[in-house]
Structures are given as C-alpha cells and as structure tokens.
Simulated scan of single mutants.
Amino acid sequence: MAFYDTLKLEKGMYTAGKGFTRTLEELDPSANYEGTPLAGLDAYQRQLKRFDIRVGGTGSDPVEKFFQTSDSAALFPEYVSRAVRQGIERADLLPGIVATVTKINSMDYRTITSDPLPQDKELLPVAEGAEIPRTVVKTQENLVRLHKRGRMLVASYEALRFQKLDLFTVTLRQIGAYIARAQLDDAVNVLLDGDGNDNPAPATDVTGALSYQNMVSLWSALQPYELNTILASTPAVEDILNLKEFQDSAAGLDFQGTGRLATPLGAKLLHVPSLSGSRLIGLDKNCALEMVQAGDVLTDSDKLIDRQLERASISVIAGFAKIFAGACRAVSYTGE
C-alpha cells in the first residue's frame, strides 16, 4: 500500500476519468489513517501537508510554493477546482430548489417523467379482483440541454507567483460565485419555460398590487404538491415583506438581526435578482427540478501544471429538467 509521502503525482491523474482526489484515495485510502494525526484529512489534503503548502490563513504560502517540485505542481489544478467549488457552494441557491442531482459522463441525457391524472393521485381503495391503478414512468422526448459556464483565467505566472494563496483563493471563489448565479438563471428559465418537453409552468397574471389573497391562491393552486419554496424577483421580495400579514414581530426581528427572509405560508423565500419584473415562482422543491451535471469543475490541468496561466479555462457543464411539471407555478402582477 502506497504511503502518502512516497506517491508519484502526475498529470495523468486528472485524465483517468475519476477525478484527481478519487484517484489519490484509491492509491492512498483515508481509512488507513484512522487513529493517527492525519485522521480527518482526505488524500489531497495529505499531499498538501506532505509538501508543507498552506492554502489559507494568515500564514498562507505564495502561489509559487505549488511549483517547488513537479509532484507538488500536480496539486495546483485541484487547488483551483476546490477554490472555485467553494465559491459555487457559498453563493449557491440551487440546493434550495433542486430535488436531485444526476451526474453523467456524457453530453447526452434524457430524463424520465411521470404525469398521473388527478384521479390517479388519490389512490382510491381497490376492490377485490380489480386492477390496481398504474403509474406510467417514461423517458422524455427531448434531451436535457446542458450549458457550459465558466471563465478564462488570464494572468501570467510571474504576476501571481509571489501572491498569497489566501488572496488568490478569494479571486477563484468569486469565479465560482459567477458560475453559481449563471446556473441559477438556467434553473429559473427551466422552471418558467420548461425543459423543451412542452412543460412550462402554469402562470397566473394579476392586475394590480400583490395581495395576501394572491399568496393563498398560489398555495392552494399547487395542491397536491407542497408550497415549500418561493423564488421572487427584487420587487416581489419587497412587496411580500411589506404585506401586513407577514409583518409579525418575530419575523421582523429575525430579518433585522440575521438577514433571513420571512417564510410566507411556511415556504422558504429566495431572492433571485435576475428574475425580471414583479414575478414570483412557487414550487415543491422535493419533486420539481432535477439538476444534471457532466463532470465536476473542469480546469486546463496541463496548462496549470506547466504554469501557463495566460489562457487556462475553468468551467462547469450542467443542465436542468423538470420532474413533475405541476410542482411549479408562476405569478406575475402589474404592481399598480
């Protein structure tokens, strides 16, 4: 069994189809370190310790520390991927609206659907000898549209070599935040317009200002699904927070003290600045949307290892599909 400080690191670990960390884990399993000072670290973190590379904190090392040897240079693309992933996770609202995440190893994916009639959802008693009602599950007609979102890293090694990794991490996290916001826009577009399989969200147009009755109507119209998440544009968030029915003292203190938005009718309110106009979307996050990911955060590992940072790309490929079309409804109002 290979030990962490004797492993030979190379570029090929990024092209093995498993990912760098998973390849390391197979060569140097974390289970071997239980009860040792290295317990709690994954295989990549043990390699950082091996080369004494500090990527965070006041004592973080300069970027050039990764390039002290050819082995340590192989860790740099994984550092970039992890920093970008942290930025995605910090700015990511998708866990609040996605029911499941499907990871694929190709660019073609066709999801499944089941659209039972209202009477099929009631599960009425079945008489003796009678046929049990069926739930038909089938594949969608059209493929899920995958979008590549990312940034090109434009910088010379000479410009970055003496910069602290802690500062460089902040920049990479911001790239991740950009990607997260773009993916949220993709998800909202699928919720509103459908995923290409003739399944747009049913929409209600309201003339005038948003009222408490409109919120109750949204809650009742979503049945038998549960209204547990509301996506709202900036004007809609302001209008919801100004409804007197939601202006109780507890909600006000929570918003003023923590910044957490109110939970109208028990639903989690999420602010989506890119959502245009006075519009909100109500959904059941447990069964409305599927996220499809083709791989993880992708980097030009060869260029990063060879210090060719001038045109190194960082990208993510993902798409969204509706699971149950009826688990999402939209409301637009004039606000006048």
Rank of each mutant, 00 (worst) to 15 (best):
D195G: 01
R307G: 08
K285V: 01
S60E: 11
F66L: 02
T258R: 06
T204K: 06
Y109N: 06
K244F: 08
Q293T: 03
I175P: 08
D42G: 01
K148G: 03
L304H: 04
G87E: 03
T6N: 15
E158N: 13
G208H: 13
L227A: 04
L160W: 05
Q140I: 07
T229D: 04
G259L: 08
V98G: 00
Q86G: 11
D195K: 00
G208Y: 12
I132W: 05
E141A: 12
Y79E: 14
D306T: 10
A203Q: 06
G56K: 10
D239M: 11
D61V: 09
D195W: 01
Y4G: 14
Q174T: 08
Q45S: 02
I53A: 01
Q213G: 15
G194R: 03
S274Y: 13
L124R: 04
A251V: 04
L167W: 11
L143G: 12
P202L: 04
N228E: 08
S30W: 09
A182R: 09
G257D: 11
L289Q: 03
L265T: 09
V292H: 06
G194Y: 02
T207S: 14
T100V: 08
S313K: 06
T229K: 02
I104M: 00
T102W: 02
G277A: 04
P133H: 05
F20Q: 02
F162V: 06
E128H: 03
L270R: 07
I97C: 02
S60A: 15
L143Y: 14
I323A: 00
Q140D: 09
T263S: 11
A312G: 09
D115F: 09
E141V: 13
Y157V: 00
K49C: 10
S278P: 06
Q256V: 08
E64Y: 05
D92R: 02
G259W: 02
K148Y: 02
D193C: 04
L27K: 07
K49V: 13
K49M: 15
S332D: 12
R22W: 04
L309Y: 14
I305E: 10
R151F: 07
V216Q: 15
R161P: 07
K8N: 15
T299C: 05
A312E: 03
F66Q: 04
F324V: 02
Y79Q: 06
V137T: 02
D254R: 10
H147E: 15
P116K: 00
D185T: 09
A232V: 01
V55P: 05
S249R: 10
S217Y: 13
A39N: 10
T23C: 05
G196Q: 01
